[in-house]
Amino acid sequence: MAQTVKFTIDGKQVTSTEGTTVLEAALSAGIFIPNLCFHPDLEPYGGCRMCIVEIQGMRGMPTSCTIKVAEGMIVKTFGPEIDKTRRDALQLLLANHPTDCLACVKNQRCELQKVAAYMGVTERTMQRTARPQAVDESNPFFKLDRNYCILCARCTRTCNEITCVNAIDLVSRGDETRVSLFQDQQFMESICRSCGECVARCPVGALVSKNTVIPSSEVLTTCCYCAVGCSMYLGVRDGKIVSVRGNSEGKSNKGKLCVKGRFGIAEFVTHPDRLTSPLVKGENGQVQASWDDALQIVADRFKTYSPDEIAVVASARTTNEDVYAVQKLARAVLGTNNVDNCARL
């Protein structure tokens, strides 16, 4: 078990465990420190400099996301010097970022906006240094608009640390640095597996889903594709699924999803091809029938077969309860053990 560590943040006694960073400890103690490049799933980076603090006995202003808590540590998270330094870093970002928040799909969900609001920044004070940057819309599910990018590297770190695909990386250096792919090719020409984990972690409007609709409610469920059983939230609005996000509490996936789970659900569920009525085969092929009629036909016909003449194939795709009901029907009603599923593929 990790050791307990007691220390002070802004005069408040905080208890945390060894190995925790000052930022994480502060956040979980309810003390907000602005941050942008930090993400709980990723290794500390220390790039955005928003989370700088003062720590007694340490030179300068270390980033709280990279410092581990220590017994008796005394941390100060605010003060005029800290505020000015953070504010200038933020202003530098704003001088390099588009100004049209209303036109951005991340409006009100943008972490840069959130930090600016927290610091009470309402106007830009520095000279604009933004230059037009390439936009990649090749992927059917998401786009990369580098004009919005703040180079927090969450996406590239995700592609390296989380998915280990390494399709995207930081390319070039200095203020030429950009998130890019091999040879600056487009996503669709690259080895990207389109899992969207980078999109899920982008704090701003740089990597965003196409057709973003904000759900009115979310329902926690389990993915219907492979056997990993990723725990996910389906976002619902107007009776339709409009979004999918991984549940970071999910034990098997810890918030991660793949391309099918993240982008391949909403469209099929309410696809116009869905069967909406029972069909019964007649002389002119299959024709629509009422549920009552169709069920009656099935029930009547099933009664005519002996247990050895009938077989039931349950689905490895439906729920446990669905399967239970079906095998119970086979055994208790049809009287047969001829029940199987396609477990072998």
Binding site: Y45, C48, L151, G174
Partner: peptide, 22 residues
Amino acid sequence: TTSESCGKCVPCRLGTRQLLTI
């Protein structure tokens, strides 16, 4: 320094550019 900044941290990446512009 603008062309030699590694680009990782905001104050250096964008600050050198800002100072250079001024």
